[in-house]
């Protein structure tokens, strides 16, 4: 699963808990601390966020920014062509055909 993270504008969070409810990974909790408005704000408490954006979509105060790991571009390690029979190709750890 993709790896993601979320950043909160904690001063504008109202502690409504709708993001906590919407998170499929159970990654969010209310902080025991309060912000200047007097609300307990939300914090990311687990390292399992997938960057699915669910929390941000339901946040009434639009205080959540979501990041997701960039997709790794895959570089081919070998090209095989003109095969007429079954062959075996093994690739070593560095990705070089061996």
């Amino acid at each position: 699963m993709a790896k993601g993270t979320v950043v909160f504008d904690i001063e504008n969070c109202k502690g409504c808990e709708l993001c906590i409810e919407a998170c499929p990974q159970d990654s969010l909790e209310l902080s025991p601390r309060i912000n200047a408005q007097g609300y307990h704000y939300v914090v990311l408490v687990k390292d399992n966020c997938t960057g699915c954006t669910n929390c941000a979509l339901v946040c009434p105060d639009a205080v959540i920014t979501v990041y997701r790991e960039k997709k790794k571009t895959r570089v081919p390690v070998a090209r095989i062509s003109g095969v007429t029979q079954n062959i075996t190709v093994t690739i070593d750890e560095e990705g070089k055909p061996s």
């Binding site: 993601g4 993270t5 504008n12 109202k14 502690g15 409504c16 808990e17 709708l18 609300y39 960057g51 954006t53 941000a56 979509l57 339901v58 946040c59 009434p60 105060d61 639009a62 205080v63 959540i64 920014t65 979501v66 990041y67 997701r68 790991e69 960039k70």
Partner: peptide
């Protein structure tokens, strides 16, 4: 990482006056 969701620029920076959890601001 890449940003996949952010508050749109078409909203001002003003804090919503709505009660916590109100659907209006969504």
């Amino acid at each position: 990482m890449e940003c996949v969701y952010a508050r749109p620029d078409t909203l001002t920076d003003t804090r919503f006056h709505y009660c916590p959890g109100c659907g209006h601001s969504v």
